[in-house]
């Protein structure tokens, strides 16, 4: 493989890694605050893609406005999911809320099959994304180029939000000590809602770009990316946002490079994530950037 080819794969890996990172953030943020693995997160991602699909095909609104609205709308669905499926169980044993998450996931998948139909649909790709950009002698598709860019902007925005705003500080405080946070006058429910909104919003943005890159839509399409991004979050150290981003990139790049360098192992592409997970957890049980997991009292 020549240099060109390597750069090409690198670009693809970064692009896939960006998508994984965007989705993994949702897992890690929710876990950080509720100590809950939101099993329905991959299905929220799927909903985001379908909502965009219908928005583009069945309205005359410009595609980019549909993209924005669909992402916000998906964010609100995530917020609603927490209100309906998790909030009433917050005082229950942890296992109850986990089961509720699994139930919510099945529900959304089957909702998708009933409402959207089981047959695959083709994502309507706006023409701009079919263009090819030349970058240092390598030609890559527009979307491969756009994905990391959008991801970078969102990550910068998220970092600003988490580190500089009062709500972001409240989020960090809440992830460590609910009671003291409420003694500051923090509205815990509001912060949790915002967390779910952000996670689902990012999953939707990732989903839309996913749809452009892999334009085949199915109601179960959230399962595998969801699982992998959960793994990415665990690899990075669940609860840690930087870790989730790191995990996403390691997974995306690793997967593409595995296929590129060892084409014979292409069939093991999906297994790669699990193997990596096992290896990393054996070396560092808390994940790359994770701290000791403290039980919430």
């Amino acid at each position: 493989m020549g240099n060109q080819g390597l750069l090409q794969h690198l670009a693809n890996g970064i692009s896939l890694g960006s998508l994984y990172a965007l989705i993994a953030i949702g897992y890690t943020m929710v876990y950080g605050i509720l100590r809950l693995i939101n099993f329905a997160h991959g299905d929220i991602f799927m909903l985001g893609i379908y909502i965009t699909y219908y928005g583009v095909l069945f309205t005359s609104i410009p595609w980019w406005i549909v993209f924005i609205f669909a992402s916000v709308f998906t964010g609100l669905i995530g917020l609603l999911l927490e209100k309906v499926a998790y909030r009433p169980l917050r005082e229950s044993p942890r296992i109850t809320i986990l089961i509720s998450a699994i139930g919510a996931s099945f529900f959304l998948q089957n909702f998708g099959i009933v409402v959207f139909g089981g047959r695959p649909k083709a994502f309507p790709i706006p023409n701009v994304f079919n263009r090819v950009v030349k970058l240092g002698g390598v030609s890559i598709s527009m979307i491969t180029f756009v994905i990391p860019l959008v991801t970078l902007l969102l990550l910068l925005g998220l970092t600003y939000f988490i580190t500089k705003t009062k709500t972001g500080m409240a989020m960090r405080a809440l992830s460590k000590d609910y009671e003291t946070a409420s003694l500051m006058g923090i509205d815990i429910n509001r912060i949790i809602s915002i967390t779910f909104f952000i996670g689902s919003f990012l999953a939707a943005v990732g989903g839309i770009m996913w749809g452009i890159r892999y334009p085949q839509l199915m109601p179960l399409m959230g399962v595998m990316p969801g699982l992998k991004c959960f793994i990415a979050a665990v690899i990075g150290g669940i609860g840690n946002i930087t870790g989730a981003v790191l995990g996403g990139f390691i997974l995306g790049l690793g997967e593409i490079m595995l296929v590129a360098l060892l084409p014979k192992l292409t069939g093991y592409r999906d297994a790669f994530a699990f193997i990596l997970l096992i290896v990393i957890l054996l070396i560092k049980p808390t994940g790359l950037m994770g701290e000791k997991i403290t039980e919430k009292v």
Binding site: M169, A173, A181, M184
Partner: peptide
């Protein structure tokens, strides 16, 4: 809040 800076604690 141990992970937050002194100033962030005050802001909260």
């Amino acid at each position: 809040f141990e992970d937050l800076t002194v100033e962030e604690n005050l802001i909260l």
